[in-house]
Write a protein that binds this DNA or RNA. Structure first.
Lengths: 188, 188
DNA sequence: CCTACGACCGTACGAAACGTATGGTTCGTT
DNA sequence: AACGAACCATACGTTTCGTACGGTCGTAGG
């Protein structure tokens, strides 16, 4: 069976947390690995099933109430995970940034300049995300998270600051442009 | 009909370039907007068809040889694009970074430390991408590309540098760690 | 010319991912 | 005990994905 990156995400999560239900994974991923590997939560129900069918996870199902399924790592699962971790990674990260797209197409048809609004909102987004990350750094620092997991927050922060710098500078530029235009129309 | 971001990407591209075939779009996007909105090239054959059916693009098909279809923007298409450009953008960018995932899961099961290799390769990737972007800045500067399109390159560069800084520092840290371990085992 | 070959171009198709919408479960409150 | 809010699980129709194949064109050598 063909394993996707999301498959390994599931294996990795179960490896880190021990036996987990899909909902456990959902909560755990939504505030960690979900930030740099985007996916819909329904994958966390279907994917473990596939992995169990392939013998990489073991299922333990509770037959009353919520009918929770608890998945745990098999030896094969652990081996597959390690193999993936050890394998070379040629991929560059992939991005999907609507705001940047809009910026790119900006004067393609828009008579009025939508960029300042766009920049404003992006600045808000990135500041908010930075706050989230910093809060996590503080909290998990206390909790003594393992190094590799802490460190990914640093990368997140670097990226966010880069984006924030960009949109901030862009907004400033636009304001300068506008002032300059105004001065040209009506000098002094 | 429901328009996706990719739909607007197509509309935007046709708006910028004028009448285009899917293959034109493929070449044009692969070295520009494709860097911050990832998608498979087959979309550039199916999506314009959908847009044409919705009246947002007009088709002109050549009936011999390659049976090329040339799409151009209709008034409705232009209106849809402008509406989208003017609409507020709440989204934060989305990322998919395999390397970061591997870093996150690192000691989850790996007896040997795969991080230095991982970092090494990521450094290579990002340096390469930076070179590509800088080459584009130089070339398109001469060609007099419009401002908004030039400026997205800046964001790309900011992001790449952020990632590069991160992986470089990480690699340096690891080397320090290893030296420290070695010294502890065999002081002096 | 004519043919062969490599690069260019287009699309079909099966598999996977997506995301919404729905319905059941649990728990705390009154 | 009845209710409501938050919690949890999944079904299902739609879209996206990516590979793999087949046709077309330029060109270079015969």
């Amino acid at each position: 069976m063909r394993l996707s990156t999301t498959s390994y995400l599931v294996l990795g999560m179960v490896a880190l947390r021990g036996p987990s239900t899909p909902y456990d994974l959902k909560r755990a991923t939504s505030r960690s690995v979900g930030y740099f590997w985007n996916f819909p939560h329904t994958q966390l129900y279907s994917e473990p099933e596939r992995l169990a069918a392939a013998g990489l996870l073991a299922v333990d199902l509770e037959d009353s109430g919520r009918r929770r399924k608890t998945y745990s790592l098999t030896a094969e699962g652990r081996a597959a995970l390690q193999e993936w971790l050890a394998a070379p990674t040629a991929e560059h990260f992939e991005m999907r940034d609507v705001a940047e797209l809009k910026l790119f197409f900006n004067e393609a048809g828009s008579p009025d300049d939508d960029v300042p609004k766009l920049a404003q909102e992006q600045i808000r987004q990135h500041e908010e995300r930075i706050a989230v990350y910093e809060e996590m750094v503080a909290r998990h620092g206390e909790e003594g998270w393992a190094r590799p997991r802490m460190i990914t927050l640093e990368l997140g922060l670097e990226m966010e600051h880069a984006a924030l710098r960009f949109w901030t500078a862009l907004a400033a530029d636009r304001i300068d442009d506008l002032r300059r235009e105004r001065e040209e129309r009506d000098p002094r």
